[in-house]
């Protein structure tokens, strides 16, 4: 029974500590690109790369600390569905950028 309770707790809740850590990370990851952009600290390409990296890290923080994707029990259907969705997302976004860049060159 105790074991069951512990499992249930892990599966749904996380702890106050994990939420606070996640919140602090998300604030820091928002402030870093903001400061860089507002003060024009880096070149255009470097800023773009930095913004994207910070956004992806922020996504990971929300998934791990807030949505508890790592605590999922074994057949990890949530994770599988998410990966499937991300593959489609990347195909749509990268494919659109690629084909429309080429289109601009052709015309």
């Amino acid at each position: 029974m105790e074991n069951h309770n512990a499992n249930a707790h892990n599966a749904h809740g996380g702890s106050m500590k994990s939420y606070v850590i996640g919140f602090l990370f998300s604030i820091i990851l928002t402030i870093i690109p903001l400061v860089v952009v507002m003060n024009d600290m880096l070149s255009k390409t470097a800023t773009t790369v930095l913004i994207l990296i910070m956004a992806i890290l922020q996504f990971a923080v929300q998934l791990i600390f807030f949505m508890h994707i790592r605590d999922e029990e074994k057949p990890r259907f949530n994770l599988m569905a998410l990966i499937f969705g991300l593959v489609i997302l990347l195909t749509i976004v990268a494919g659109s950028i690629w084909i429309m860049t080429y289109n601009a060159v052709a015309s």
Partner: peptide
């Protein structure tokens, strides 16, 4: 989830828009 989407809106539309 909405927060995650907003992070990308903020990054791609606003931060990249004004840099």
């Amino acid at each position: 989830f909405l927060d995650v989407v907003w992070i990308f809106v903020f990054s791609i539309v606003y931060l990249m828009g004004v840099m």
